[in-house]
Design a protein around this nucleic acid. Structure first.
Length: 701
DNA sequence: GTCGTTTCACAAAT
DNA sequence: CATTTGTGAAACGA
């Protein structure tokens, strides 16, 4: 356990006023080949709209719930929209690019002919007629499954697998259309042959992002449809078959675009970026022509715990050869000196570098593994020995080449900090939240003498003076065991377009315009899958002093793509003052949702350019706030913010939640894009960006 | 609830 | 085209 929080009282008098450097930027980075010039439609990628209107066509506020508490005209306006606009097109409802007979994701779901166009009031009236309450749907569910669920709310009568089989036949969800729309979004549709062979960081990032979005969306669909498709393999297969990959030709040594310390959550990811081409096998090798005969040479290995490798010493790895196990019946026999084993043997004599990927058990409870690229090793020794069953196995001793960045050893250090075996250097405060968060957040400075950021009060959620009022009462769910995917009677799932927005691991599965979480009046428990951002911090964070950007935020734990990080807490500013405030005051420590942000999904440049949140939400974290106030700007961010709505009766609370865009290794700074502000307001507040990314816009606000 | 174990359905390279 | 290589999630059992 961590130390108590009060062990080291902070000396306020010594605290300097360090503000995070908000960053910079604007020229939103267009992917190569998709420059604005090449796309006439996109010549004005951003439109500036005053939060209260007037709105140009296509930029109207689309959420009927936003009835302003102090502006009559706004109230009028939004309720009008509530009736006039039947269905805010959900960002995640991808329409297939016109080929696949126009079917959409939503249209593929069986049994919902009525509600295809959104959720007008009528959508629920059906169920209300039958029982006077909106619980009829649940009743239907019970009869359908003849389930004997008692208090858990889970359908215990049948296993998920059984339900799968029952519904298996229906439904191919339009994978092709989904893939294509992602490929268009991230400009991967035509990948030139050079790039397929030689990657770069940007390309690797884009491929992994598409893989991740695809995988998560497939699993979201699988959640309710039934079929068990191994979304990880399926997504990999879809990209592989389209040849969306890089570093395709095997090479010895580092792979362009992949850095030592990068992490991966699926074996398929290693294949896609060319780090390790075997989707299952632990040893990847190629044959090189050497004078007369062909010699196999090992290029990379994965040490994943399938064999008893010994990797306890950070720079040495004792690796076991492959084979020798009959997978079906567990029988063992001698390993043979062929394939991968032979390649490793040859590589020792050649003395070539071998990439090493270490697979660890995922610390955060999930059953999966995390793969860490630990850089280049050389094989120092090889031998054969007998295992417990008396069969011959091959062993290879690998030594890590010196001078490479810390990777696997960093993980070991962090584990020691957590276990209290060693202490993190430069810790000023073990927990700057004083215990108000579920996990401590360290304050660390191993750079200079500054003793901490300016004083502020730590709070964990935004402070609303007044909730937004809804024109019609929100339906609360009665899912006592937590909302379950595929439960057609759950109004909370309905609000999310029929899908639960989060996976069972707490990963955001898509990036819709708005996530609807369960609210105060929902009957589901606090651990409901649809209350992910209400459950507090999931990773061990630290606020640290950067060399040139004030304070920053990073995590001791790895964060998987889509994983929840934190929300933005502070004082929610009164709507009537926001516009004035935005133009007149310093905005350090203020989150401003009224800026223009690049959507993460969807074609970049030619899709709707509406701001993420059509309401002028600003959160002031100067006096009171949480860890999020320390997150710096980057033009190549690894974190994305997502509006999350929690409704109860006639009230709605909008929250800003941060999710990882990619897998984030431990100790890598967490950053998001601060967005851009209208040019007429911009000049004065422009600040120089220090994000150091290759796509840096040079400034931020 | 939590742990380890078993089962199932898959993909790429050779 | 058959073989070789485990993986990742859910179900199951203790």
């Amino acid at each position: 356990m961590e130390q108590g929080f009060d062990s080291e009282p902070i000396d306020r008098s010594k605290i300097l006023n360090i503000k995070p450097l908000r960053s910079l930027a604007p020229v939103f980075p267009s992917p190569p080949g998709m420059s604005l010039a090449s796309n006439p439609q996109a010549s004005f990628p951003f439109v500036c709209v005053p939060p209260t209107g007037p709105f140009p066509p296509g930029l109207a506020p689309i959420y009927p719930f936003l009835v302003s508490t102090d502006s009559k005209s706004a109230a009028q306006q939004s309720s009008d929209f509530g009736n006039a606009i039947p269905s805010p097109a959900p960002l995640n409802a991808f329409r297939t690019p016109d080929t696949a007979n126009g079917s959409t994701v939503r249209a593929m779901r069986g049994g919902r002919s009525q509600a295809e166009d959104g959720f007008s009031d009528d959508d629920y009236s059906d169920s209300m007629d039958q029982s006077g309450q909106f619980v009829t749907g649940r009743f239907k569910m019970h009869t359908t499954y003849t389930d004997n669920a008692t208090n858990s709310g889970r359908q215990k009568g049948k296993t998920k697998r059984q339900r799968r089989n029952e519904r298996a036949e229906s439904s191919d969800f339009d994978e092709e259309g989904l893939v294509n729309s992602f490929l268009i979004s991230f400009n991967l549709l035509q990948l030139d042959t050079f790039k397929k062979d030689t990657g770069d960081k940007d390309l690797v990032d884009r491929i992994l992002l598409v893989y991740s979005l695809l995988r998560r969306r497939l699993s979201q669909y699988e959640d309710i449809s039934g079929s068990s498709k191994r979304p990880d393999l399926k997504a990999g297969n879809l990209l592989m078959s389209k040849d969306i990959r890089t570093n395709k030709s095997k090479k010895i040594g580092h792979v362009p675009g992949v850095e030592v310390g990068d992490i991966f959550l699926f074996r398929m990811e290693l294949c896609l970026v060319g780090l390790h081409a075997q989707s299952m096998g632990g040893i990847d090798y190629m044959t090189v022509k050497l004078s007369s005969d062909n010699d196999p040479v090992a290029v990379s290995i994965v040490s994943a715990g399938g064999y008893d490798d010994d990797g306890n010493d950070g720079d040495v790895l004792i690796y076991t050869g492959q084979g020798g196990v009959q997978r079906q019946d567990g029988l063992m026999f001698d390993q043979k000196l062929e394939r991968g084993n032979l390649a490793l043997e040859k590589s020792r004599h050649r003395g070539n570098e071998v990439r090493v990927i270490r697979g660890l058990k995922d610390v955060q409870g999930s059953k999966g593994k995390i793969y860490i690229y630990d850089g280049l090793y050389k094989i120092e020794d090889t031998w054969a020995e007998k295992n417990k069953s008396g069969c011959n196995i091959f062993k290879y001793k690998l030594l890590r080449l010196p001078g490479q960045p810390e990777a696997f050893t960093l993980w070991k250090s962090i584990q020691q900090w957590k276990d209290g075996v060693t202490s993190r250097v430069g810790v000023i405060l073990p927990d700057l939240t004083s215990g108000s968060e579920r996990l401590p957040v360290s304050l660390v400075n191993d750079i200079d003498d500054v003793k901490g950021p300016d004083y502020f009060t730590y709070i964990t959620t935004p402070k609303y003076i007044r909730a937004y009022l809804l024109s019609t009462p929100s339906l609360s769910c009665i899912c006592r065991g937590g909302c379950q995917p595929g439960d057609v009677s759950c109004p909370c799932i309905e609000k999310n377009d029929g899908y639960l927005p989060y996976s069972s691991l707490g990963v955001l599965l898509s990036y819709p315009a708005l996530v609807h979480e369960c609210g105060k009046t929902c009957a589901c428990p606090s651990n409901c899958r649809n209350r992910m951002t209400q459950a507090g911090l999931k990773v061990r964070l630290e606020v640290f002093k950067t060399t040139n950007r004030g304070w920053g935020l990073r995590s001791w734990d790895p964060i998987r793509s889509g994983g929840f990080i934190c929300e933005y807490a502070g004082e929610v500013m009164d709507a009537s003052k926001v516009d004035k405030f935005a133009s007149e005051f310093e905005d350090d420590y203020i989150f401003d949702a009224t800026r223009i942000y690049q959507p993460l999904e969807g074609p970049q440049g030619n899709r709707s350019q509406s701001p993420k949140v059509p309401y002028p939400l600003m959160i002031d974290a100067r006096r009171e706030g949480n860890v999020a106030r320390f997150m710096n700007h980057s033009c190549s961010p690894n974190v994305y913010w997502q509006p999350v709505l929690r409704e109860s009766d006639n009230e709605a609370y909008l929250h800003i939640a941060f999710f990882a865009i990619k897998h984030i290794p431990p100790m890598q700074e967490l950053t998001f894009d601060y967005g851009i502000i209208p040019p007429e307001k911009a000049d004065r507040r422009r600040k120089q960006c220090m994000c150091g990314s290759s796509r840096c816009r040079g400034f931020f606000y």
